[in-house]
C-alpha cells in the first residue's frame, strides 16, 4: 500500500510515495538516494542510521516513513558538505575518528545531538548528581555516544574529536 509523504532532508523538501512498510531509512536511501545515513543492522542496535530529526538525534531504521510525514531531517551530508564541513566533522578528520567510515555519518550526527543535550542539561547514566548540570567529561561523552557502534574501534579518536568540539580541546 503506497502513501505519499513529504520530508525535508538537508534543507530540500521532497514528496515521495512510500509503501506503508518502508522505513524512514529505506525511504531516504532507496527512494530519495540520500545514502549518508547507513544501514548497519536495521534493528536499532548499531546507530549507523542516526540523523537529526526535528533537531534531535534519532534512528531511522526503527521508524516507518509514513509515520514521519512532514519531518525535518538533517543528515551528516547536510551538516556539512564535503567542501564545507561542520566543526565536528573537521575534528573527526583531525583526530582520525574514523576508519572504514561506515558508522561515521551516524557518529557525527550523534555527536551533534550529544553536545546539544549537554547544553540543555540532560543527565546521563554516568551523571553523579542527577539534578546538577552535566559537564562534558570523557565519561559523559563516552556514555552518551554509546548508541553508535564502531567495529573498527575508532572510539578513542572519536572521543578526542567530540571532546574538542565540546570545547575541551586536547585534554
Amino acid at each position: 500500500m503506497d502513501s505519499e509523504i513529504s520530508l525535508t532532508v538537508d534543507g530540500r523538501r521532497h514528496t515521495v510515495a512510500v509503501d506503508t512498510r518502508t522505513t524512514l531509512l529505506d525511504a531516504l536511501r532507496d527512494r530519495l538516494g540520500v545514502t549518508s545515513p547507513k544501514k548497519g543492522c536495521d534493528h536499532g542496535q548499531c546507530g549507523s542510521c542516526t540523523v537529526l530529526l526535528d533537531g534531535r538525534r534519532h534512528l531511522t531504521c526503527l521508524a516507518l516513513a509514513v509515520s514521519y510525514d512532514g519531518a525535518e531531517i538533517v543528515t551528516a551530508a547536510g551538516l556539512g558538505p564535503e567542501d564545507d564541513l561542520h566543526p565536528i566533522q573537521e575534528a573527526f578528520l583531525d583526530h582520525d575518528g574514523l576508519q572504514c567510515g561506515y558508522c561515521t555519518p551516524g557518529q557525527v550526527c550523534s555527536a551533534v545531538g550529544v553536545l546539544d543535550e549537554l547544553k540543555q542539561g540532560h543527565p546521563s547514566h554516568v551523571s553523579q548528581d542527577l539534578e546538577a548540570t552535566p559537564e562534558p567529561s570523557d565519561d559523559e561523552l563516552r556514555e552518551r555516544m554509546s548508541g553508535n557502534l564502531c567495529r573498527c574501534g575508532a572510539y578513542a579518536n572519536i572521543l578526542a574529536a567530540v571532546r574538542e568540539a565540546a570545547g575541551r580541546g586536547q585534554a
Binding site: T35, S36, A76, L93, D96, L98, G101, T104, P105
Partner: peptide, 16 residues
C-alpha cells in the same frame, strides 16, 4: 597525513 578519503566519509558522501 590526514585520511585522503576522510572528507567523503565524515559527510557520508563516500559510496559503499
Amino acid at each position: 597525513t590526514i585520511r585522503l578519503d576522510g572528507r567523503l566519509k565524515v559527510s557520508g558522501a563516500a559510496p559503499y
